[in-house]
Design a binder for these strands. Structure first.
Lengths: 117, 117
DNA sequence: ACCGTACTACGAGGTTTATCGTACGAGAGG
DNA sequence: CCTCTCGTACGATAAACCTCGTAGTACGGT
Protein backbone atom coordinates (compact mmCIF):
# COMPACT_ATOMS: atom_id res chain seq x y z
CA UNK A 1 0.00 0.00 0.00
CA UNK A 2 2.90 2.31 0.63
CA UNK A 3 4.06 4.09 -2.45
CA UNK A 4 7.38 5.75 -2.04
CA UNK A 5 6.91 8.44 -4.65
CA UNK A 6 4.18 10.21 -2.69
CA UNK A 7 6.15 12.26 -0.26
CA UNK A 8 4.47 15.30 -1.72
CA UNK A 9 0.80 14.95 -2.49
CA UNK A 10 0.34 16.34 -5.91
CA UNK A 11 -2.81 17.89 -7.27
CA UNK A 12 -3.73 18.02 -10.92
CA UNK A 13 -3.83 21.48 -12.43
CA UNK A 14 -4.85 22.43 -15.94
CA UNK A 15 -2.08 23.64 -18.19
CA UNK A 16 -2.12 27.23 -19.26
CA UNK A 17 -3.51 26.48 -22.69
CA UNK A 18 -6.24 24.38 -21.15
CA UNK A 19 -7.72 27.25 -19.19
CA UNK A 20 -11.08 28.24 -20.63
CA UNK A 21 -12.53 31.71 -20.38
CA UNK A 22 -16.01 30.42 -19.58
CA UNK A 23 -14.61 28.35 -16.76
CA UNK A 24 -12.78 31.30 -15.29
CA UNK A 25 -15.84 33.52 -15.53
CA UNK A 26 -18.00 30.85 -13.98
CA UNK A 27 -15.51 30.33 -11.17
CA UNK A 28 -15.47 34.04 -10.46
CA UNK A 29 -19.24 34.41 -10.62
CA UNK A 30 -19.72 32.87 -7.20
CA UNK A 31 -19.50 35.37 -4.31
CA UNK A 32 -17.60 32.96 -2.11
CA UNK A 33 -14.99 32.21 -4.73
CA UNK A 34 -14.72 35.82 -5.77
CA UNK A 35 -14.00 36.68 -2.17
CA UNK A 36 -11.27 34.06 -2.04
CA UNK A 37 -9.69 35.41 -5.18
CA UNK A 38 -9.86 38.94 -3.87
CA UNK A 39 -8.14 38.00 -0.64
CA UNK A 40 -5.57 36.02 -2.55
CA UNK A 41 -4.88 38.99 -4.76
CA UNK A 42 -4.74 41.54 -1.99
CA UNK A 43 -2.50 39.48 0.27
CA UNK A 44 -0.48 38.52 -2.75
CA UNK A 45 0.87 35.37 -1.19
CA UNK A 46 0.07 31.76 -0.63
CA UNK A 47 -2.65 31.22 1.89
CA UNK A 48 -4.01 28.10 3.51
CA UNK A 49 -7.65 27.18 3.03
CA UNK A 50 -8.43 27.75 6.67
CA UNK A 51 -6.99 31.26 6.58
CA UNK A 52 -9.93 32.66 4.66
CA UNK A 53 -12.50 32.16 7.36
CA UNK A 54 -15.26 31.34 4.96
CA UNK A 55 -18.71 30.95 6.49
CA UNK A 56 -19.11 27.40 5.19
CA UNK A 57 -18.03 23.94 6.18
CA UNK A 58 -14.78 22.39 5.12
CA UNK A 59 -16.49 20.23 2.55
CA UNK A 60 -17.91 23.26 0.84
CA UNK A 61 -14.55 24.93 1.14
CA UNK A 62 -12.89 22.06 -0.63
CA UNK A 63 -15.51 22.21 -3.35
CA UNK A 64 -14.97 25.90 -4.04
CA UNK A 65 -11.22 25.58 -4.05
CA UNK A 66 -11.48 22.69 -6.44
CA UNK A 67 -13.65 24.73 -8.79
CA UNK A 68 -11.08 27.51 -8.70
CA UNK A 69 -8.24 25.11 -9.27
CA UNK A 70 -9.90 23.22 -12.10
CA UNK A 71 -10.79 26.48 -13.76
CA UNK A 72 -7.13 27.44 -13.63
CA UNK A 73 -7.61 30.41 -11.34
CA UNK A 74 -5.55 29.18 -8.41
CA UNK A 75 -2.70 26.81 -7.76
CA UNK A 76 -2.68 24.49 -4.81
CA UNK A 77 0.46 23.09 -3.24
CA UNK A 78 0.62 20.73 -0.33
CA UNK A 79 2.92 21.62 2.45
CA UNK A 80 2.74 19.30 5.37
CA UNK A 81 -0.83 19.06 6.53
CA UNK A 82 -1.66 22.40 5.03
CA UNK A 83 -2.39 23.28 1.45
CA UNK A 84 -1.26 26.60 0.13
CA UNK A 85 -3.33 28.45 -2.40
CA UNK A 86 -1.91 30.96 -4.82
CA UNK A 87 -3.39 32.94 -7.64
CA UNK A 88 -2.21 31.92 -11.11
CA UNK A 89 -1.75 35.51 -12.04
CA UNK A 90 0.94 34.92 -14.63
CA UNK A 91 -1.14 32.43 -16.55
CA UNK A 92 -4.31 34.47 -16.33
CA UNK A 93 -2.59 37.67 -17.36
CA UNK A 94 -0.92 35.91 -20.27
CA UNK A 95 -4.15 34.35 -21.48
CA UNK A 96 -6.61 37.12 -20.69
CA UNK A 97 -4.71 40.39 -20.36
CA UNK A 98 -6.40 42.82 -18.03
CA UNK A 99 -9.25 40.50 -17.17
CA UNK A 100 -8.25 39.69 -13.62
CA UNK A 101 -7.35 43.27 -12.83
CA UNK A 102 -10.66 44.61 -14.06
CA UNK A 103 -12.59 41.96 -12.18
CA UNK A 104 -10.71 42.71 -8.99
CA UNK A 105 -11.15 46.44 -9.43
CA UNK A 106 -14.84 45.96 -10.10
CA UNK A 107 -15.23 43.78 -7.04
CA UNK A 108 -13.47 46.32 -4.86
CA UNK A 109 -15.61 49.09 -6.28
CA UNK A 110 -18.78 47.20 -5.58
CA UNK A 111 -18.20 47.27 -1.81
CA UNK A 112 -18.60 43.64 -1.01
CA UNK A 113 -20.47 43.28 2.30
CA UNK A 114 -18.62 40.10 3.18
CA UNK A 115 -15.37 41.96 3.24
CA UNK A 116 -16.57 44.06 6.11
CA UNK A 117 -13.70 46.24 7.29
CA UNK B 1 -45.24 53.86 -43.55
CA UNK B 2 -45.66 53.87 -39.88
CA UNK B 3 -43.17 56.53 -38.99
CA UNK B 4 -41.32 54.51 -36.42
CA UNK B 5 -44.39 53.57 -34.50
CA UNK B 6 -42.86 52.98 -31.10
CA UNK B 7 -44.10 49.80 -29.61
CA UNK B 8 -46.12 49.92 -26.45
CA UNK B 9 -44.40 46.82 -25.16
CA UNK B 10 -41.71 47.72 -22.74
CA UNK B 11 -39.27 45.46 -20.98
CA UNK B 12 -37.90 45.99 -17.50
CA UNK B 13 -34.18 46.58 -17.27
CA UNK B 14 -32.06 46.93 -14.15
CA UNK B 15 -30.72 50.37 -13.42
CA UNK B 16 -27.04 50.93 -13.70
CA UNK B 17 -26.43 50.83 -9.98
CA UNK B 18 -28.36 47.58 -9.73
CA UNK B 19 -25.99 45.69 -11.97
CA UNK B 20 -24.00 43.17 -9.98
CA UNK B 21 -20.59 41.94 -10.97
CA UNK B 22 -21.39 38.34 -10.12
CA UNK B 23 -24.47 38.48 -12.30
CA UNK B 24 -22.51 39.84 -15.23
CA UNK B 25 -19.80 37.23 -14.84
CA UNK B 26 -22.38 34.49 -14.58
CA UNK B 27 -24.20 35.75 -17.65
CA UNK B 28 -20.94 35.79 -19.58
CA UNK B 29 -19.87 32.35 -18.39
CA UNK B 30 -22.29 30.57 -20.71
CA UNK B 31 -20.88 29.89 -24.18
CA UNK B 32 -24.15 30.70 -25.87
CA UNK B 33 -24.51 34.03 -24.16
CA UNK B 34 -20.87 34.87 -24.60
CA UNK B 35 -21.30 34.28 -28.30
CA UNK B 36 -24.26 36.63 -28.37
CA UNK B 37 -22.31 39.33 -26.57
CA UNK B 38 -19.38 38.91 -28.90
CA UNK B 39 -21.55 39.29 -31.98
CA UNK B 40 -23.28 42.25 -30.42
CA UNK B 41 -19.95 43.88 -29.72
CA UNK B 42 -18.40 43.14 -33.08
CA UNK B 43 -21.39 44.29 -35.10
CA UNK B 44 -21.72 47.20 -32.76
CA UNK B 45 -25.38 47.72 -33.48
CA UNK B 46 -28.78 46.53 -32.48
CA UNK B 47 -29.55 43.04 -33.65
CA UNK B 48 -32.70 40.97 -33.60
CA UNK B 49 -32.76 37.72 -31.71
CA UNK B 50 -33.13 35.71 -34.89
CA UNK B 51 -30.07 37.29 -36.43
CA UNK B 52 -27.69 35.38 -34.24
CA UNK B 53 -28.50 31.95 -35.64
CA UNK B 54 -28.12 30.22 -32.33
CA UNK B 55 -28.36 26.43 -32.44
CA UNK B 56 -31.21 26.34 -29.95
CA UNK B 57 -34.96 26.74 -30.00
CA UNK B 58 -36.70 30.06 -29.63
CA UNK B 59 -37.63 29.28 -26.05
CA UNK B 60 -34.02 28.79 -25.09
CA UNK B 61 -33.13 31.91 -27.00
CA UNK B 62 -35.63 33.91 -25.00
CA UNK B 63 -34.20 32.46 -21.80
CA UNK B 64 -30.63 33.45 -22.62
CA UNK B 65 -31.58 36.93 -23.69
CA UNK B 66 -33.52 37.36 -20.51
CA UNK B 67 -30.53 36.32 -18.43
CA UNK B 68 -28.39 38.82 -20.29
CA UNK B 69 -30.97 41.55 -19.86
CA UNK B 70 -31.58 40.90 -16.16
CA UNK B 71 -27.85 40.85 -15.56
CA UNK B 72 -27.66 44.27 -17.18
CA UNK B 73 -25.50 43.18 -20.08
CA UNK B 74 -27.89 43.96 -22.88
CA UNK B 75 -30.81 46.24 -23.58
CA UNK B 76 -33.88 45.04 -25.42
CA UNK B 77 -36.20 47.28 -27.37
CA UNK B 78 -39.30 46.23 -29.21
CA UNK B 79 -39.72 47.36 -32.74
CA UNK B 80 -42.69 45.90 -34.49
CA UNK B 81 -42.55 42.15 -34.31
CA UNK B 82 -38.84 42.19 -33.82
CA UNK B 83 -36.89 42.95 -30.70
CA UNK B 84 -33.61 44.72 -30.98
CA UNK B 85 -30.77 43.82 -28.69
CA UNK B 86 -27.95 46.17 -27.84
CA UNK B 87 -24.98 45.93 -25.55
CA UNK B 88 -25.09 48.23 -22.51
CA UNK B 89 -21.52 49.21 -23.09
CA UNK B 90 -21.80 52.61 -21.45
CA UNK B 91 -23.16 51.21 -18.23
CA UNK B 92 -20.75 48.31 -18.12
CA UNK B 93 -17.76 50.48 -18.87
CA UNK B 94 -18.81 52.96 -16.21
CA UNK B 95 -19.33 50.28 -13.59
CA UNK B 96 -16.53 47.89 -14.45
CA UNK B 97 -13.92 49.74 -16.50
CA UNK B 98 -12.05 47.49 -18.87
CA UNK B 99 -13.96 44.38 -17.92
CA UNK B 100 -16.02 44.00 -21.06
CA UNK B 101 -13.08 44.78 -23.30
CA UNK B 102 -10.83 42.22 -21.66
CA UNK B 103 -13.56 39.59 -21.76
CA UNK B 104 -14.19 40.26 -25.44
CA UNK B 105 -10.50 40.24 -26.24
CA UNK B 106 -10.07 37.00 -24.33
CA UNK B 107 -13.03 35.43 -26.10
CA UNK B 108 -11.69 36.47 -29.48
CA UNK B 109 -8.29 35.13 -28.66
CA UNK B 110 -9.68 31.85 -27.44
CA UNK B 111 -12.35 31.23 -30.04
CA UNK B 112 -10.27 32.18 -33.03
CA UNK B 113 -6.76 30.96 -32.36
CA UNK B 114 -6.23 30.56 -36.10
CA UNK B 115 -7.27 34.09 -36.83
CA UNK B 116 -4.68 35.90 -34.80
CA UNK B 117 -1.85 33.42 -34.57
C1' DA C 1 3.03 4.72 18.63
C1' DC C 2 -0.66 7.71 19.32
C1' DC C 3 -3.40 11.65 18.65
C1' DG C 4 -4.66 16.09 16.70
C1' DT C 5 -4.91 18.91 12.63
C1' DA C 6 -5.87 19.81 7.76
C1' DC C 7 -7.93 18.51 4.02
C1' DT C 8 -10.41 15.00 0.74
C1' DA C 9 -13.98 11.64 -0.97
C1' DC C 10 -18.40 10.11 -1.24
C1' DG C 11 -23.07 10.64 -0.98
C1' DA C 12 -27.50 13.23 -0.10
C1' DG C 13 -30.78 17.12 -0.23
C1' DG C 14 -32.45 21.17 -2.21
C1' DT C 15 -31.99 24.80 -5.51
C1' DT C 16 -30.77 26.63 -9.90
C1' DT C 17 -29.92 26.12 -14.73
C1' DA C 18 -30.31 24.85 -19.80
C1' DT C 19 -33.07 22.87 -22.94
C1' DC C 20 -37.17 21.71 -25.11
C1' DG C 21 -42.34 21.55 -26.58
C1' DT C 22 -46.62 23.63 -26.87
C1' DA C 23 -49.77 27.37 -26.53
C1' DC C 24 -50.39 32.23 -26.77
C1' DG C 25 -50.01 37.57 -27.96
C1' DA C 26 -48.47 41.43 -30.97
C1' DG C 27 -47.48 43.38 -35.28
C1' DA C 28 -47.16 43.28 -40.79
C1' DG C 29 -49.31 42.34 -45.06
C1' DG C 30 -52.45 40.16 -48.41
C1' DC D 1 -60.76 39.77 -42.22
C1' DC D 2 -57.09 36.08 -42.04
C1' DT D 3 -52.44 34.42 -41.93
C1' DC D 4 -47.65 34.59 -41.24
C1' DT D 5 -43.62 35.61 -38.57
C1' DC D 6 -41.40 36.89 -34.28
C1' DG D 7 -41.08 36.48 -29.73
C1' DT D 8 -43.13 35.30 -24.82
C1' DA D 9 -45.09 32.38 -21.09
C1' DC D 10 -45.68 28.26 -18.88
C1' DG D 11 -44.64 23.57 -17.86
C1' DA D 12 -41.49 19.62 -17.93
C1' DT D 13 -37.04 17.25 -17.70
C1' DA D 14 -32.34 16.37 -17.03
C1' DA D 15 -28.11 18.16 -15.68
C1' DA D 16 -25.30 21.04 -12.81
C1' DC D 17 -24.56 23.42 -8.67
C1' DC D 18 -24.08 24.65 -3.49
C1' DT D 19 -24.32 22.98 0.84
C1' DC D 20 -23.77 19.75 4.26
C1' DG D 21 -22.54 15.38 7.12
C1' DT D 22 -19.79 11.46 7.77
C1' DA D 23 -15.85 8.80 7.09
C1' DG D 24 -11.25 8.54 5.63
C1' DT D 25 -6.16 9.85 4.48
C1' DA D 26 -1.74 12.30 5.13
C1' DC D 27 1.35 14.76 7.95
C1' DG D 28 3.49 16.64 12.25
C1' DG D 29 4.17 16.68 17.19
C1' DT D 30 4.16 14.59 21.88
Amino acid sequence: MTTAAQSARAVAHPDREEIRLEGVLHALSDPMRLLVVRQLASEGAELTCSHFGLPVTKSTCTHHFRVLREAGVIQQIYRGTAKLNALRRDDLDALFPGLLDSVLAAADRQADPLDGA
